[in-house]
Simulated scan of single mutants.
Amino acid sequence: MIINNVKLILENEVVSGSLACENGVIQAFSDTPSQLPQAIDGEGNWLMPGMVELHTDNLDKFFTPRPKVDWPAHSAMSSHDALMVANGITTVLDAIGVGDVRDGGHRLDNLQKMIGAIQYSEKHRLNRAEHRIHLRCELPHDSTLPLFEQLMCTPELSLVSLMDHSPGQRQYTSLEKYRVYFQGKYNLNDTEMDEFESSQLRFAERWSQPNRQAISAWCRQHRIPLASHDDATLAHAEESMSIGSTIAEFPTTEEAAQASRERGLQVLMGAPNIVRGGSHSGNVAAHRLASLGMLDILSSDYYPASLLDAAFRLARDESNHYQLPETIAMVTSNPARSIGLTDRGVIAEGKRADLVLVTQHQQQVYVKSVWAKGRAVW
């Protein structure tokens, strides 16, 4: 396959030219057009590597499209996969929440239903993107460690993150914001919310630290990448480094982001934060970290289309010094390398031919075509 007449987004520059791939691998690229008549005409659009998503909750939306509605697993998986590919994401770490007692994360059967759908669709080559697993461990629960121990040897496991969403912690240092969010999410009256808040505080005091130590120790032993989540202080960043974290997911303050960076962690922020212009929780804005040069990886989190959009928005933003190859790296090579995937994420000879053709109308970018291992999937 030859793709001609494109702007190739390489690691350090953008070059107009053509690209050839064979057997799912990039064979060569050139700064001159191909003269072969069978070449695909890219019509002068951008050709970039397929995007790598480390943290998306999108799968949950298809398994439970409405409260108390459970959708058939393989239908849900197929729809989720299609949405990922349509937005140029060719490698997906599907986030599975362990230990969240109100969202089904306390039930092994519910978790295995989602993991089983990922494994089955991957085994039978039904997916267009490659799907892996990210276990999001909600630390302040007695169910978290037993469930993790039953799931931790899942072959597709590529990332573990440690979360603490208890009141007064990290993302929810503001108790007012905590109550507003969870009362709205679970439709609780004031009395029910008081009981929920009290129970979460009890769970956190009893289980957060023991679970953090046990899960991180297993990840270090088995060399599974570990991510912190919602670190807010210097102490949080130091603790994350001490237990072996290599990624700082969604630090909530500039202090935590800087401390994480100084300690060798890669800072991951939400692409919706870039698109919307700030955090929906009132935490540090991703574009602020970008302006300080402290942003390494973007995640679509809850909105898949935000990933591509955010990368191009950052490249246009004059408040930072990032150029397009650098912002594209935040959604391709940087996340890939952070979990040890060195065979993808860049346009280079010998790398996987995961490719996305991107066009632009005014300042909005659109996915025109997607290839996974050289096979047209969109």
Rank of each mutant, 00 (worst) to 15 (best):
V14D: 02
S260A: 15
V160T: 06
E122R: 15
N187M: 10
S299T: 15
C153S: 13
R179C: 06
L162F: 09
H321C: 11
H134S: 07
P49V: 10
A129Y: 02
A28E: 15
P335F: 04
C21I: 08
K61L: 13
L355E: 01
G42K: 06
A214E: 13
S260Y: 01
F312E: 00
P272Y: 09
Q171N: 11
H124F: 00
E13S: 15
V356Y: 01
G88E: 02
T253H: 05
A372M: 09
R206T: 14
H134G: 05
R316N: 12
R344G: 08
S158R: 15
L175P: 01
W378Q: 14
Q183Y: 06
I133K: 00
G97T: 13
T90K: 02
N283F: 06
L135K: 03
V331Q: 02
L295D: 06
I89R: 02
P49Y: 05
A353L: 09
S281K: 10
N127R: 10
N87M: 08
Q38G: 07
E22I: 10
G88R: 04
A39D: 04
Q221R: 14
I40Q: 11
G184C: 07
N23P: 08
L295C: 09
I118S: 01
M269N: 01
S216V: 08
N12W: 06
N45T: 08
D231S: 03
A290M: 11
M48C: 13
Y366S: 05
D31A: 13
Q362P: 01
P140G: 12
Y178T: 04
M77Q: 14
W71Q: 08
A376H: 14
S161V: 03
A311T: 04
H80W: 14
R337C: 10
K7A: 12
T154Y: 01
E195F: 13
V52M: 06
H280N: 09
H141D: 15
A310Q: 05
N45D: 10
P210N: 09
D301V: 04
G105M: 08
E318H: 13
R313H: 11
I339S: 05
R375G: 00
G104A: 10
T253D: 08
